[in-house]
Amino acid sequence: MAIRVNLITGRTIQQGVSMEAGKEKPAYTTACGIIELDPADFKKLGAFRNTNVRVTSKYGSVVVKAVDATQGPHPGVAYIPMGPWANMVVNPNTYSTGMPTFKGTPVEVEVAKNEPVLGSLELVRKGCRGELA
């Protein structure tokens, strides 16, 4: 069962700390390779917390871990901290302003229990080489 939500991105303090500690480290994946979902959306999705999910938009697809919203409730809105995972699916169109549309991308979320969340370097490397599923 897939659900549709509105995706926004941005900074979290965990993202900032783990970024400064090294984006190649697992802590960065733990901080940013996630999607924060509202409890109501979890119910619709029919998934346990901390399940890997595949997030897909018109622009791309990525596997992240679904966690409870830390700054909620915000039903219908999902949040992936800024970073390479979010940037796989955000709307890159700038509409002649220079600014990609990082906030407000419609996405589909479905359970992907057996797919791994890749580390940041592996994710961009595989993406660039066309090795992503």
């Binding site: 970024m19 984006k23 622009y59 791309g60 800024m82 970073g83 390479p84 940037n87 796989m88 955000v90 709307n91 890159p92 990609p100 990082f102 940041s120 961009v124 993406g127 660039c128």
Partner: peptide, 14 residues
């Protein structure tokens, strides 16, 4: 690499 949409990152790689 981390903060541009991926379609732009791919172009840097190329």
């Amino acid at each position: 690499g981390a903060h541009f949409p991926f379609s732009s990152v791919k172009k840097i790689y190329d």
